[in-house]
C-alpha cells in the first residue's frame, strides 16, 4: 500500500514537472525573436529579473521584502476576520436566534467581490493601511463565517443526543461536539478565504501603496515595464501556491481523525 502511494506521488511530481517545463518552453518559443516578444518578455528575461530582484531592490525593497509586506497585511486582516468569522459562524449554526439575525445579511454581502468595496473603503479609511486590512478582512470574513456556519449546522443530531445522554451541558456540547464537528468545514472556509485574501491584497496595493507585490505590478504598468509586471505576477503565483499547500498540511494534521484527512 505504502509503495503504491509513493508511486502515485512520484507520478504526480513527474507530471507537474512536465507541464511546467512545457509551459515555459512554449512561452520561450513564442517570445523569441517574434512580434509578440516585443510586448511580452521571455521567461529567461523574466526569471533572470526575478532572481536578480532578490538582491537589487525594486523601488524601496527587494522582492522578498515586497512579499513580506503583502503577507503581513494579509495576516492582520485574515487572522482577525477568521477568528471573528469562526465564532460568528459556529454560533449561527448553534443558535436559531443568531442565525435569524445574521444569515440574511450574509446572503446579501457574500456575492459582492471584496474589490467592489475599494472606493467605499478609501472614503472611510483613507489611503493607508487600514483600507487594506478592511478589504482583506472582508474577503476573509464572509467565506469563513458561511463555512463555519454550514459546518455547525450539519452536526449529526444523534451525536449531540449521545453527548447529552452522557451528561454533557450545552456549553460542553458546543465546545466538544459542535466545534470539532465543524473543523473540516471551517478549514475549507479558511482555505478559500486565504486565496481570496491574497488576491485582494494585490488588488488593494495596486490602488495605492508604496510597497508590496501589488505595488510591483502597478509600477511596472506605470513605467511601461512588462518584465517587472511579470516578476510581480510570478511572486503572487508562487506565494499563493505555497499558502495553499501550507493550509492543506495544517488541515491534514488537525483532521487526522476524519476519513478524509489521510
Amino acid at each position: 500500500m505504502g509503495r503504491f502511494k509513493d508511486a502515485a506521488k512520484y507520478e504526480k511530481t513527474i507530471f507537474a514537472v512536465i507541464s511546467i517545463t512545457t509551459f515555459l518552453l512554449i512561452w520561450y518559443l513564442v517570445t523569441k525573436d517574434t512580434e509578440l516578444g516585443k510586448v511580452l518578455a521571455g521567461p529567461v528575461t523574466v526569471f533572470g529579473k526575478f532572481f536578480k530582484s532578490f538582491t537589487e531592490p525594486l523601488g524601496t525593497h527587494v522582492i522578498p521584502g515586497h512579499i513580506l509586506w503583502s503577507l503581513s497585511r494579509v495576516m492582520v486582516g485574515y487572522v482577525v476576520a477568521s477568528i471573528l468569522g469562526i465564532i460568528l459562524g459556529v454560533t449561527m449554526g448553534w443558535s436559531r436566534l443568531v442565525e435569524a439575525m445574521f444569515r440574511p445579511l450574509f446572503e446579501i454581502i457574500r456575492p459582492i467581490p471584496p474589490i467592489a468595496w475599494i472606493p467605499l473603503a478609501i472614503l472611510w479609511f483613507g489611503l493607508g493601511e487600514l483600507t487594506k486590512y478592511f478589504l482583506i478582512a472582508l474577503a476573509t470574513f464572509s467565506n469563513v463565517t458561511m463555512n463555519a456556519y454550514s459546518g455547525a449546522k450539519s452536526v449529526d443530531p444523534v451525536l449531540i443526543g449521545a453527548a447529552r445522554m452522557l451528561g454533557a451541558s450545552d456549553s460542553r456540547i458546543f465546545m466538544t461536539i459542535v466545534l470539532p464537528a465543524s473543523v473540516p468545514h471551517i478549514f475549507a472556509g479558511l482555505q478559500i478565504a486565504l486565496g481570496s485574501a491574497w488576491a485582494t491584497v494585490v488588488a488593494a496595493e495596486m490602488v495605492r501603496s508604496s510597497e508590496g507585490v501589488g505595488w510591483v505590478i502597478i509600477t511596472g504598468q506605470d513605467t511601461n515595464n512588462s518584465v517587472q509586471i511579470l516578476v510581480g505576477i510570478i511572486a503572487v503565483g508562487i506565494i499563493g501556491y505555497v499558502l495553499a499547500i501550507m493550509m492543506r498540511q495544517i488541515e491534514a494534521n488537525l483532521c487526522s481523525w476524519s476519513e478524509r484527512g489521510k
Binding site: D156, V158, L159, G161, A162, A163, R164, M165, L166, G167, T176, I177, P180, A181, V183, W257, S258
Partner: peptide, 20 residues
C-alpha cells in the same frame, strides 16, 4: 423528562465521536 447519565444508550449506527 430529558437525557441524563443515569441512562446509557448504545446506538444503531454507533454514534461515536469521530474526533476522539
Amino acid at each position: 423528562e430529558k437525557p441524563g447519565p443515569d441512562r446509557g444508550v448504545v446506538y444503531q449506527a454507533t454514534a461515536l465521536f469521530p474526533w476522539l
